[in-house]
């Protein structure tokens, strides 16, 4: 749907978050890897000092290369969110490809295209796994949601927040639980086109202040 993704930080802050997270992951993981490798490869008697030296030389470097990837990736992601005004898996795939291509731009156009392809395929695989996990979770979540909904929703469900897309309490959301994964994938796509005028906002909320809710009854 057209909702901005709220499981992560809103957009400009996401860049800082991703840079920091990627650097920390790369530095810690790379340090452990290079420490063990250094200990293994050093001559007997100098194993610990060799390991520590390898760690000091290569730990920050692996952190840096991770964070270059993370930072460029989320910068492209945010640029695409702003340009396309929606957040979907294509953003991630395209920004993965753009990152891969940009990083090897100085090796020539051929190498750039090749690594853009690698980046896009990598991110497509990651997104695919994420979507599958999401489907599995949301089938369980949806049943509970419908139960809650039936119990309490009528007084609340009448109002609509203007400018913010709210999951419309309609019966079609429950049907996605019973269809197969691929079926619901295609179905969802058609559904978003139907609700375009409702679910697509003029400017995404992550770039300006949250809308003021109105309590008008329809």
């Amino acid at each position: 749907m057209g909702t901005p993704e709220s499981s992560r930080e809103p957009c400009p802050d996401r860049i800082l978050d991703d840079v920091g997270g990627a650097f920390a992951m790369g530095a810690v993981g790379g340090s452990a890897y290079h420490l063990i490798r250094g200990i293994y490869n050093s001559p007997g008697g100098a194993r610990l000092s060799g390991g520590v030296q390898a760690l000091r030389m290569s730990g920050p470097r692996s952190g840096g290369s991770f964070s270059v990837w993370g930072g460029l990736y989320s910068t492209f992601d945010c640029a695409l969110v702003y340009a396309r005004q929606k957040e979907d898996p294509w953003n991630s795939i395209l920004s993965g490809a753009a990152t891969g291509g940009f990083l090897s731009l100085r090796q020539g156009l051929g190498a750039s295209a090749r690594s853009a392809l690698v980046g896009g395929v990598l991110l497509a695989m990651i997104e695919g796994v994420g979507i599958m996990l999401n489907k599995v979770q949301s089938t369980a979540h949806n049943e509970q949601f419908m139960e809650d909904h039936a119990a309490t929703s009528l007084p609340y469900g009448m109002g609509q927040i203007s400018g913010q897309s709210v999951p419309v309490p309609e019966t079609s959301s429950s049907s996605s639980g019973s269809v197969s994964w691929f079926g619901s994938l295609f179905k969802k796509k058609k559904e978003t086109e139907d609700h375009h005028s409702e679910s697509r906002t003029h400017i995404l909320e992550s770039f300006d202040a949250p809308p003021v809710p109105t309590y008008e009854f329809k």
């Binding site: 709220s6 809650d148 909904h149 929703s153 609340y156 469900g157 709210v166 959301s173 809710p213």
Partner: peptide
């Protein structure tokens, strides 16, 4: 700000500001 704000927003949380 992010409390109870998963993407299918539960309607019981919508106006409990």
């Amino acid at each position: 700000p992010y409390q109870n704000y998963q993407v299918p927003i539960k309607s019981q949380y919508l106006y409990k500001l």
